[in-house]
Amino acid sequence: MSAEKRALVMIENVTRTFHRGAEDIHVLADLDLEIQEGEFLALMGPSGSGKSTLLNLIGGLDRPTGGRVIIGEHRIDRLNDRALAAWRARHVGFIFQFYNLLPVLTAEKNVELPLLLSPLSQAARRKHVQLALEVVGLSHRTRHYPRTLSGGEQQRVGIARAIVTDPTLLHCDEPTGDLDRKSGDEILSLLQALNQDYGKTIIMVTHDPHASARASRTVHLDKGRLSAEAPD
């Protein structure tokens, strides 16, 4: 990784506590982490280690109980709901384990969804959608509904939806967790290509060492603390 690259994500002294009845559950404790621009980071750890919570904080889906979350020039833990939603729309692409496509929409309509929040015209939106579907190799299945696509194809549509707004950050929550090995490999190759060829910064939560091996760096979480970092 280039030494000139700046830190895109800065997690400083972050804690996250959930309340369940009278009990406080400390999921993250005084956590510090930096992710460079253009990095492909894998977040690993056992269930309940706090990796999804950390991913949600970085993606602006949740707020820390304490500490600072700085992404680029934005201190997102201080943004109000509306500003945070606008920030996510502009800067983050989300890829989910179960694809989370809307079953009543075709592939192209699913990909178009995030663009509905932009001021783009319908023609411009269509161009962006075609380009994103070409990048993921699905330009021939634009009119297909999710139920007619394989799991791997659905995840490609999910990735096209995540990159269609050209976000700063790709937020991947177990992107291969619901796929067979072959489809999973294809998705990981696609993510790698997005990282290496298009310079996308990717943060991926995974249980799978095979998947984390594709990342440029792996961070391990255990009981809400960084336990070890694998070398680049």
Binding site: L61, A86, W87, R88, V92, F94, P114
Partner: peptide, 9 residues
């Protein structure tokens, strides 16, 4: 998912 993408409340 819609909210994650940036759709406001």
């Amino acid at each position: 998912v819609l909210k994650a993408m940036g759709f406001t409340n």
